[in-house]
Design a protein around this nucleic acid. Structure first.
Lengths: 216, 216
DNA sequence: GTCTATAGAGTGATAGAC
DNA sequence: GTCTATCACTCTATAGAC
């Protein structure tokens, strides 16, 4: 399957690179300005790509959005989860290390941007069905990882504590905290939200310890 | 100041009504489609008003957005707080009655729309400064009311518990829960979020009771 | 696969008569 | 205060040469 000899059609050059540049530019602009407020022409300018090329890879602006959300699905583990697991061994600490990663991103952008998935979730869920499903998948995968850590925490959480439900609660607090940080352009609301969650975890861990003592 | 005799200029007819219709239409459409995705012409059609009239009351689309957020500031007490306080006397229960009001709104729209303020918060905070400040004011007023209830709860919460911080945490959970409900088009994620918060409150109340016992 | 050129509809906003 | 008409621009998307 060499393409160098008699393949005189569609010479791919670096096809991946063009597609990549479009996804990267679109992701950045959708995050900075929102989906509807970002014109295709802005994506093209940012990517240094011409209209014809974009519509070769993506059949519409909507399709580009779906591509961006697919990219986020791919990036979850290498960009977020693996660094967290490498940095932190303790399963409960991993949850808060993950939340600290988001904090770092917030601070490094002066709290202007917020969560890429969360922003799109609210903007497009009711009007772009395919993209909405990708948002849900992003949330699901995120929660599955966190739920795994909570399962790893074993007896450090009460036996009655539903790990899946708690992982979704962690997402709730993370997104709610980022929303307020973005609105206020200050990190404090995010920190306060995580502190609230930390307090909740402390109480869950205390209950688990008491449980353990009672049972010998 | 009668306007019926020699006032041959700018006969106000029902000026308020036109402005009102525009705000109502804009609020509905911004909620259903988002700010950027809503054209001025759609607002005009929905309100049954012509372009010239709109630009008499609002100097730009942005200005209309600010007007909508001002309207939400006005509506907080009559539409949300007063009904909650009328329905529920217990200060801590009032918090969860308020959260149940949002649940009702979510369910009644099949979880399609979410929180009007939260949606706009993420869409416009980074690009529309004046509107962003109105969003912040909406959040502040909401939290001030909730914080007041938490203060009313007195010794039912631990002495060390910061009521203002807790009110913001309640907002965090409410917004994060609505985001997931909207993304999934199901009420369950919202209910699970509120259940998580309820569990946290239960533990805070338990600690307050233990505190009280210790101190006589 | 990439380019240019452009279609065709829609955008926010304004002017000026009434 | 409301109306019509319209400007100047941007939007997404496509056609067809290379």
């Amino acid at each position: 399957m060499r393409r160098s000899d008699s393949d005189n059609s569609a010479a791919p050059a670096d096809a991946a690179s063009t597609r990549e540049k479009l996804l990267e530019a679109a992701a950045r602009l959708f995050l900075e300005r929102g989906y509807a407020a970002t014109g295709v022409s802005a994506v093209l300018a940012e990517a240094g790509v011409r209209s014809g090329s974009m519509y070769y890879f993506f059949k519409s602006k909507d399709d580009l959005l779906v591509g961006v959300l697919d990219r986020y699905l791919e990036l979850l583990r290498p960009v977020l989860i693996e660094p967290v697991e490498a940095a932190t061994a303790d399963p409960i600490d991993r949850v808060f290390t993950l939340l600290a990663f988001y904090r770092h991103f917030l601070v490094s952008t002066n709290c202007r941007l917020g969560c890429p998935i969360g922003n799109l979730a609210l903007e497009i869920s009711d009007t772009h069905e395919e993209a909405r499903q990708k948002v849900v998948q992003n949330f699901e995968n995120w929660c599955a990882v966190v739920a795994g850590w909570l399962v790893d925490a074993g007896e450090r959480l009460p036996a009655s504590c539903d790990r899946g439900a708690l992982s979704r609660y962690v997402l709730t607090v993370m997104e709610g905290g980022q929303m307020q940080a973005k609105a206020q352009k200050r990190i404090e609301p995010y920190d306060a939200s995580i502190a609230g969650l930390r307090d909740h975890f402390n109480r869950l861990e205390a209950e688990a310890r008491a449980e353990k003592e009672r049972n010998g």
